[in-house]
Amino acid sequence: MSNSNTTDFTNPSTFILLGIPGLEAAHIWISILFCTMYTIAILGNFTILFIVKTEPSLHGPMYYFLLMLAISDLGLSTSMLPKMLSIFWFNSREISFSACLTQMYFIHCFSVMESGIFVAMAFDRYVAICHPLRYSTILTNPVVAKIGVTMVLRGGMLVLPYPFLARQWTYCRTNIIPQPYCVHIAVVNLACDDTRISSYYGLFVQFSMTGLDLNFIAVSYIQILRAICSLPTKDARLKTFRTCSSHLFATLAFYIPGLFISLMNRFGQNVPLHFHVLIANVYLLMPPMINPIIYGVRTRQIRGRLLQLFTHTGA
């Protein structure tokens, strides 16, 4: 005999998102934190888009990549926050099967895109510091556009099998997802079939995003540090390092929490479920919020343009 928790279906009509299990009484307070983070992410990234678009001096490869990062941040946060807030505020826990797969696709797609954009930005910094005289001939506008399209296609194509594979499985255990949004591993765990193909492919995507991308960024920074260390004076070394400090801080903010969550999922069996879910939410929401702050504070051109806007508005 079936009930709401154990329904025999091939494709369920709806999934039930629980929010953060064990912290239901604190959902309103948690929503204030997440809503604040989302508001900062929206305002910050739209500000970056506006400044780069309206300031001709910022029309260069580094800032074009920053535009791509802002767009991916907006896509990532918007893919999950509206539904999450509807759970916290209105107890709207149901999500249709197709909407769940769509949300899953876009969350993972924008995450992979963001990782690829960090690689592109690392390459930009490598060329700027290690080959400064060839910078304008290597990173032309057509090359930057091709890199951007490649990152978008890579994210879209890598994640595309996720919803197609998930649609094939038989779901007979439960339609309850103990999270406030749909992600690949949460949906696959509900299936009753042999889902090793999905699991192996998920590991491949994770390896491509974290392993290959992070290694490429590390190699770029090894070359960058060698070039910086070869400079004759301390002032020159500090000035050159500052040109890539924003990217370095943003990259660390993106990858280190992800590595921490991977280790926690593997070795933290005694960690409460609500802590796992809460940390995973903060991990996905933190980069969209913190990236525009990092670039706004640490990039002189953007900081100067931002001050001009506020000064002009105040006048």
Score class of each variant (00 low, 15 high):
Met264Val: 11
Ile222Tyr: 14
Ile107Asp: 05
Pro82Val: 04
Tyr255Gly: 00
Leu203Asp: 15
Thr313Asp: 06
Ile138Asp: 01
Pro272Val: 02
Phe34Asp: 02
Phe310Glu: 03
Ser57Met: 08
Ser77Phe: 00
Val112Asp: 03
Val127Glu: 01
Ala253Glu: 11
Ala218Pro: 00
Gly19Asp: 10
Ala315Leu: 10
Lys239Gln: 13
Arg303Val: 02
Pro257Phe: 08
Asn291Ser: 13
Ser98Asp: 15
Pro56Glu: 14
Leu33His: 06
Asn45Ser: 05
Cys109Thr: 10
Thr311Val: 03
Phe106Met: 09
Lys53Asp: 07
Leu214Arg: 01
Asp194Ala: 09
Phe254Asp: 03
Thr243Phe: 00
Ala99Pro: 00
Phe46Ile: 09
Pro287His: 03
Ala99Gly: 06
Thr47Ser: 14
His108Ile: 00
Ala128Asp: 03
Phe267His: 14
Val52Trp: 05
Lys146Asn: 08
Val152Asp: 02
Tyr38Met: 07
Pro232Ile: 04
Asp124Ile: 00
Tyr295Asn: 11
Pro163Gln: 09
Ser77Ala: 13
Ser230Met: 04
Phe260Gln: 07
Thr137Ala: 07
Phe15Pro: 06
Gly44Met: 04
Val119Glu: 01
Leu18Asp: 14
Gly304His: 06
Thr243Tyr: 01
Trp89Glu: 08
Phe97Arg: 06
Lys234Arg: 11
Ile16Gln: 12
Gln168Arg: 11
Leu66Asp: 03
Ile177Gln: 04
Cys182Ala: 15
Ala253Leu: 12
Ala315Arg: 12
Pro61Asp: 10
Thr299Pro: 01
Leu139Phe: 05
Gly116Leu: 06
Met289Val: 06
Val187Met: 15
Phe65Val: 06
Val183Lys: 03
Met209Trp: 00
Thr195Asn: 13
Ala166Phe: 02
Ser245Met: 13
Leu85Thr: 10
